[in-house]
């Protein structure tokens, strides 16, 4: 039952799993809100998109969505495949 020689205990992995899941919900919500407050037409304008990518805060949110969902998702797949 008890497994040794593992980098992380299962409880540590699950802590990361829960934290990344909750954080992903938060950043996705911010992302959706930012999309909603700008009219659809202007959100597609070249200048607007460039300015978005120059906004460090927004870039950080977009990247963190990818990182958080990847960690959470891949661990989810690992759990499914374990059985």
């Amino acid at each position: 039952m008890m497994e040794r020689h593992r980098m992380l205990k299962e409880s540590q992995i699950m802590k990361i799993h829960y934290i990344t899941g909750i954080a992903a919900i938060f950043v996705v919500a911010v992302h959706i809100l930012m999309r909603l407050i700008v009219p659809f037409g202007s959100s597609l304008e070249y200048d607007y998109i460039i300015s978005n990518y120059k906004n460090i805060f927004y870039v950080f949110i977009l990247e963190s969505i990818l990182v958080l969902i990847s960690i959470h998702g891949f661990n989810g797949i690992r759990i499914i495949l374990l059985v």
Binding site: M1, M2, E3, K9, E10, S11, M14, I79, L82, V83
Partner: peptide, 13 residues
């Protein structure tokens, strides 16, 4: 005691 079930097939499933 908690370590007994802190594994891949343990309590977290």
């Amino acid at each position: 005691r908690l370590d007994i079930v802190d594994d891949r097939h343990g309590i977290w499933r």
